[in-house]
Structures are given as C-alpha cells and as structure tokens.
Design a protein around this nucleic acid. Structure first.
Lengths: 221, 221
DNA sequence: ATTACTAAGACCCGAGTAG
DNA sequence: TCTACTCGGGTCTTAGTAA
C-alpha cells in the first residue's frame, strides 16, 4: 500500500519546488526535463505516468500545459517527509494550532460504539468522554495536518454491525493544555481541515472552551 | 555541488532504516536486495558504488560484510530532509539544546577580522560582540545539528590575507534567551558537536552564563 | 511554440558462475 | 554460504518527427 516509487517522489518534489504556493503552474515538458536532467520526451512520458497514477492534474490550452499536484500527489511528499523524519529519528511531535468549532454530534455517536471504546481503552489507555472536540486547523498548519494524515498512528480496527460499517481509524496520542487526549482520523485519507479530538476529560468544561477558542494541540507521530 | 542522486538517497535511507542507531550493521547484498526490490547482484553493485562515492564504509570478515554510513552519507539524508522541508515549507526553526563550554579564544580572533565583521553587519544586521559563545550540543540533538550543517544559511565570503586564508562560513539567525544571535559554521562541513554563537550582546554577562550552563538555542534554517 | 508517437540504441538488470 | 564478475536480454531513454 504505502510504497512510494522513488522516481515519482523525485519528480513531484521538483514540480512542487517550481510551484511554490500556487495551485497551478504553467510547465512545459522541456522545462521539467531540464530540472530533472532528462529529455523533453522523457519528461512528457513522466508527466503522463503521474497523471495516470492520479498524482498530477493537467489543463492544456493552446498546446501549453498547466499542471497541478493532486492531494494524492501531496500525500506522496508528506509520506516521504514522515518516513525520512522517522528514519532519522527527528521531529516526533507536531504542534498544531486551530479553533474550536461545534460538531454535528456525529463524532459522539461514532466513538460511543463499544468496539471503538474497547480499543481506545486498550491502545490509548483511557476511556474517552463521550463526545469529540472539533478543531478547525489554521491554514498555515495545513502542512502539519498533511503530515498527520500520512502518518500511520495507532491502528483502531473497524467493524460491521447489522445496519452499517464502521471504518478503521487511526489515533495519535497528544495533549491540549496539559490534558491527555488523542486525535482521531479515518484511516482512509479524508482531506478536511477539521480534526476530531477525544480525551478522558470533558475538554470544553475543563479548559473553559467555547466555539472559536484558540487551541494548541501537541501530537506524537 | 549539492545535487543528490535519487538512487543514492533511496538506498542510504533504506540502509539507515535497517541500522537504526547502531554504527555498523551486518548486511548481505541479498538482504539489501530484498529491501530495495532488486537482485543480489544489483545490490552488490549499488554498495560498491556508494563506497566509491564515500557514502558507505565496509569491513568484510569471513565473506560477510559489515556496513556503516559515513558522515558524507548521513549528509545526503539530512540534506534531503532539509530540501523536502523547505519545499513543503514546514519546519523552519530548530530548537537546539546544549551546554556552554569555554573556547580557546580562537573564535574571537576569527570573527574580529574586518572582512567578516562588515559582512555580519550587512547580512545579519548587527556587529557582533568580539567573542564567540561555544556550545556543546546534547547528543540527542545530533540530528538537528546535522540538519543545520546541511542547510545553506547566510553566506559569508572568505578572504585571503598576506599570512593565511580565511574560509567562507555560513550564518543562521537565531536567539538565545530572547536575545538576538547567530550560529556560525564553516561552509565546508566539519563534524564537531560544538557550535559557535555570535551576538550583538556579551551573552555570558547578559544571561549570567558560566561553563556548563544550559542553553536553548532557536535558529532559522 | 507546444505535446507525444515511433524506432533504435544505450544502459541497466539479473542469471550464471567463479573465487 | 558469501561477494562480485561477465554477458545476454530486456527496459528505458532519446533523436526524429508529426500534429
């Protein structure tokens, strides 16, 4: 599943460097070829391969192509970042900032399922307060959020009931305002800027949080 | 100069993952081949290439090889880490911890050279107190120090006098205890665990530091 | 200008095998 | 077993070129 092709990684990094923050960039196959030290023809083939794999998107106007990296493509880069940081044993903690927002009460329903609760107790060491704290992550912390999504985390098995399927999720131990907690994400990447937090404590009360409150979350990856 | 071969990077990362913290590892070409999804023959060729480039060292005993990654090899990994972090625009600040040690007074001599001073003023925005604060970096922060060494930093030109040559150095803006400072490293990698700090302030006095004092340095890379 | 197909050749990989 | 050489075959790159 999570095996990256070094060539894909290298090309995506090169394209990302050219793009900077802009979502689209006008990039000819000749230009890319120069950056990668390959011919225009090879660069063209490489681009087609990456589009085929879903890592790039393209618009062609007047025989000139505009290129964008997809979320899946960015996942390649952030996974590699995580992998390298883990191999070099640096950067084990992310500090993520955001604001409290009100959820739809859905989180509470999910995490109350007995199968999840049992695993939280076993793998995180606490039984969560029956509700989630939803945090909208600052746009500047998008990169950290992407690293989190591309980290393995603590695996929480999914399960099936008569009615429906509850997917596997992954948890990351952390803390907010000195209180133990965990960030919960679906194991299948969902590109949202909202993070759901569980904790043995009712964080809204303990930390006197209301919608809009600033939050500093520290998580171990 | 600083162009990494993606294959070298990939292999070194794989070997580093196998090694963990141990300086040497017994690793047959067959085993490496499996990890890299190539044949024993190719793995053997790859190892020879990396030894030739100075990224690996090897001892052969009883037809079995023990492998170690050289400092130059680790530089490849930490450079890539820096490059990727810079492309993804994350991780611009390193927090490095260590202890004050007494220098040999050499630092004072170096940074007092007029050519250096002029450049410090121009590029860092301050004229340093005429002495350096030497910090022995905690072994746990070795990784961060390696990242620093493999960052470009602010280029300070070298120069030649009648007597001798003063090499190019690189500077990193930062702060200690809220006071502005900069870390100074030779541009040519020197693998020491001591970092030299300059500052517009006499840090020893301002922060009441003595040999052995704990220091938290924050630097921008 | 572009992109990208085709064809030919360079280069790389691994089977066989020696030491 | 191990490492690592040779060499044949297959893959991948690029030159030429069309659209």
């Amino acid at each position: 599943m999570n095996s990256i092709d070094p060539d894909d990684y290298w090309t995506l990094k090169t394209i990302k460097r050219i793009m900077g923050k802009s979502p689209w960039v006008s990039l000819s196959s000749r230009e890319l070829g120069e950056k990668l030290s390959v011919s225009q023809q090879s660069a063209s083939r490489i681009i087609l391969k990456l589009i085929d794999k879903g890592f790039l998107q393209r618009k062609i106007q007047d025989r000139r192509q505009n290129i964008s990296i997809t979320d899946a493509g960015l996942d390649v880069l952030f996974s590699e970042m995580n992998d390298l940081a883990s191999v070099l044993e640096i950067d084990r903690t992310l500090e993520i900032h955001g604001n409290v927002i009100s959820g739809l009460g859905e989180g509470r329903y999910y995490i109350s399922r007995k199968s999840y609760i049992i695993q939280f107790q076993e793998k995180l060491g606490f039984i969560p307060y029956l509700g989630t704290l939803n945090i909208r992550i600052d746009p500047e912390n998008e990169g950290k959020l992407r690293r989190l999504r591309n980290s393995t985390g603590i695996h929480i098995e999914g399960f099936v009931t008569d009615d429906r399927t509850f997917g596997a999720v992954k948890a990351f131990s952390g803390s907010i305002g000195g209180l133990e907690c965990a960030a919960i994400l679906p194991e299948r990447s969902v590109y949202s800027d909202v993070l759901e937090i569980i904790s043995p404590f009712y964080l809204r009360e303990k930390l006197k949080l209301t919608d809009g409150s600033r939050i500093n979350l520290a998580v171990k990856i």
